[in-house]
Amino acid sequence: MSIAGKVVIVTGAARNMGYHTAAALARRGARVAIWGRNVDALDIAARSIGGDVLPLAVDITDAAAISTGMDRVADHFGGIDGIVNNAGVAYPNRIENLDIGQLEEQIRINLLAPILTCRSVIPHLRRRGGGRIVNVSSATVHRDGAFSFLSIYGATKAGMERFTDELRHEVQQDDIGVTTFIPGDTSTGFGQGWDEQVVGAAYADWLERGPYWNGMMQVEDVGEQIAHCFDLPGKAAFEFVLMRPVGREPKILEGG
């Protein structure tokens, strides 16, 4: 199908992977609603993307806020044809040292939020006669050694993947395609704000797992491929996409 003129929501879209996904969809002629937490950052992103973009600050861990956000998108554009559940958060730490607040935040954003947004968007997609849902996971679930001490991040993404499997089965009769998109290491600045001491210990542990890794992909390339999930014919969908860097490089990170 052509995504031109279709309405797609992208969560966590003020920057990084979500921003580049929204930009790639807009280049295809989609009308895009970008969701996030920071109003100013969303406005800047919307102006940068250009085209028919609606920035909305939505708490994706709150069912009522999500429902209101969905209604605002549908009212503004006349309906909803798809969603990309991209928002995610990670805090590395040893299991014995897990911070309860960080643990709960990862569960809320990485697992609860996509469950709630999918729950809310299904009736909107059904009214359009079908649509597409893309849930963004992580290669951490499938490949050991992406980084150390990401037990909760990996567990929440694994839970989202299992949820997505059941979702795919339940909505196939409504012509709703469901994709689990799994990016490997990507240059996003994802670790900004992490505790330096914890990161140092995680980095040391990661180095002990072997001297080489595959390197990083460019975030623009990953966003382009997430958007590509909407390029398929209406009766076809990618069920699982695992996108990983190709290469063999010494484990030396910037500043490492």
Results as ranks from 00 to 15, higher is better:
residue 1 M to T: 10
residue 4 A to I: 06
residue 5 G to K: 09
residue 11 T to H: 05
residue 11 T to K: 03
residue 12 G to V: 09
residue 20 H to D: 09
residue 23 A to I: 01
residue 26 A to Y: 03
residue 29 G to V: 10
residue 29 G to K: 08
residue 31 R to L: 06
residue 32 V to T: 04
residue 40 D to W: 04
residue 40 D to N: 10
residue 45 A to N: 07
residue 56 L to S: 06
residue 64 A to W: 07
residue 69 G to P: 05
residue 70 M to W: 02
residue 82 G to R: 00
residue 92 P to R: 01
residue 92 P to G: 02
residue 92 P to H: 02
residue 94 R to W: 06
residue 99 D to Y: 00
residue 102 Q to L: 07
residue 104 E to W: 00
residue 104 E to P: 00
residue 107 I to V: 15
residue 114 P to Q: 08
residue 115 I to E: 07
residue 123 P to K: 12
residue 127 R to T: 15
residue 128 R to H: 11
residue 132 R to D: 03
residue 137 S to Q: 06
residue 142 H to F: 13
residue 143 R to M: 12
residue 145 G to Y: 08
residue 146 A to E: 13
residue 151 S to L: 05
residue 159 G to L: 06
residue 166 E to K: 09
residue 168 R to G: 10
residue 176 I to C: 07
residue 181 F to L: 09
residue 191 G to D: 13
residue 197 Q to G: 10
residue 200 G to M: 09
residue 200 G to A: 14
residue 210 G to T: 09
residue 211 P to S: 12
residue 212 Y to L: 14
residue 213 W to D: 11
residue 213 W to G: 03
residue 214 N to G: 14
residue 216 M to F: 15
residue 222 V to F: 12
residue 235 K to D: 15
residue 239 E to P: 01
residue 255 G to M: 09
residue 256 G to T: 11
residue 256 G to F: 05
